[in-house]
Structure formats: structure tokens, C-alpha cells
Design a binder for these strands. Structure first.
Length: 185
DNA sequence: CGCATTTGACCAGCGC
DNA sequence: GCGCTGGTCAAATGCG
């Protein structure tokens, strides 16, 4: 099984810096991005130092938009849970990148810079926690995300992004305090 | 009043 | 074909 460590956030500074254990925090909550990526419905937990360093390296190299779509298909080809109704491809045959990651957070709604509109909530099998469905509220942008708590450890939040934003980040604020701005510096 | 959220209904895919 | 399940829709509701 191939693993892809990606930064689901378009801003590479979001969630982690050059160190995975970097913890952005605000006055209201604390957030730790785990060294997890879920594909094939399997959680890989890199607790050992060697794996961790590898994951960090990978995370620094790969960003959301860099996902090789063919490789992504290979990695998800036998995963029914992550497929669209028509497979991983969209209605027109285009490939829809799908990224899942797990974060340790007390809150489920994490401000990733984009504006999301909630359109559904479901209880899913094998998970007593509810799954929330969001769409990017930007006009013409079809990116979706699902947010649910880990069935085994509710202190973790599993977020799945589907699709790629076709617009820039609205640039609101992150965590109330942290704000990323385009800078000429 | 406008917008976001909630929530039940509906639909499609899949396995048996 | 049928039932289960996940995903989406849209009317109702809540909130600022």
C-alpha cells in the first residue's frame, strides 16, 4: 500500500511548520496535527522515531496540489469507502483528489482558511460519532470535506477533503489569532 | 430579514 | 430484487 503524506491545507504553514510537533495554538484551544494519513481505511500511526522522521520528510515535500493523481488512484483503487459513487473519478471522468488526515483536537471545526457550508450530518455504521458534510461556499468551487471523530479515539478528528479549490484562500483568520497574509517579504 | 444550520427524506451503489 | 449504507437535497428552523 502506498502512502501519501500531504499537507491538506493550501498554506504550507498551516498545521505544522518544519517540525511536525510544532503546535499552533490559540487562547481557545490546542491543536496537534498527527502524523497520520488514512488511505485504504487504514490508520498508520508513526509513533516510532524512524517512521516519524520519514513522515515529516514526506510532509515537507508534498503539498495538496502535488498529489499525483494516477498514483492516488492506485493507492485508493481498492478502497470502496473512499470512492465516489462513480469510483474515484468524477462524473466527467476527471480525477477527484481525496485527502484524509487525522488531527488531535477538542474541536471539530478547524479554520483552514476556506469558508465552508454545512449541508449534512449522518451517523455512520461502526462509529457512534456523527459525520458532518461540508461544501466550499465559494461560487463554482465543488470541494467537499467530511469531518468526523475517530471511532476508536474521540480525541481525534478525521477530516477528508475531496477535490481541489479553484480559487484562492479567502484569508480570514486562523485560530482567532494566527493570520496568514500574502507578504512581499 | 438574511444567512447558516439542522434534519428527515430521498437517491444511488453495493452485497447478498 | 431487496435491504443496508453513505451521500445529498431542501424545507424548516435558529440566530445574529
Amino acid at each position: 500500500m502506498d502512502l501519501y503524506f500531504v499537507n491538506p491545507h493550501p498554506n504550507p504553514n498551516f498545521g505544522y511548520s518544519t517540525h511536525m510537533n510544532h503546535v499552533p495554538s490559540s487562547s481557545s484551544h490546542e491543536f496537534i496535527l498527527s502524523e497520520y494519513l488514512m488511505l485504504d481505511d487504514i490508520c498508520i500511526d508513526h509513533h516510532d522515531q524512524e517512521s516519524r522522521s520519514q513522515s515529516i520528510e514526506s510532509l515537507e515535500k508534498v503539498t495538496f496540489n502535488d498529489v499525483n493523481q494516477e498514483e492516488f488512484n492506485d493507492a485508493t483503487s481498492n478502497n470502496n469507502n473512499l470512492k465516489n459513487k462513480n469510483g474515484i473519478k468524477g462524473k466527467k471522468g476527471e480525477v477527484v483528489p481525496k485527502i484524509a488526515f487525522r488531527t488531535r483536537s477538542e474541536i471539530e471545526i478547524m479554520d483552514d482558511g476556506y469558508k465552508w457550508r454545512k449541508y449534512g450530518k449522518k451517523s455512520v455504521k461502526n462509529n457512534h460519532n456523527l459525520r458532518n458534510y461540508y461544501k466550499c461556499s465559494s461560487v463554482g468551487c465543488n470541494v467537499k470535506k467530511r469531518v468526523e471523530r475517530d471511532r476508536d479515539d474521540s480525541s481525534y478528528v478525521i477530516t477528508t477533503y475531496e477535490g481541489v479549490h479553484n480559487h484562492d484562500i479567502p484569508f480570514t483568520s486562523y485560530y482567532g489569532q494566527i493570520s496568514f497574509q500574502h507578504s512581499n517579504a
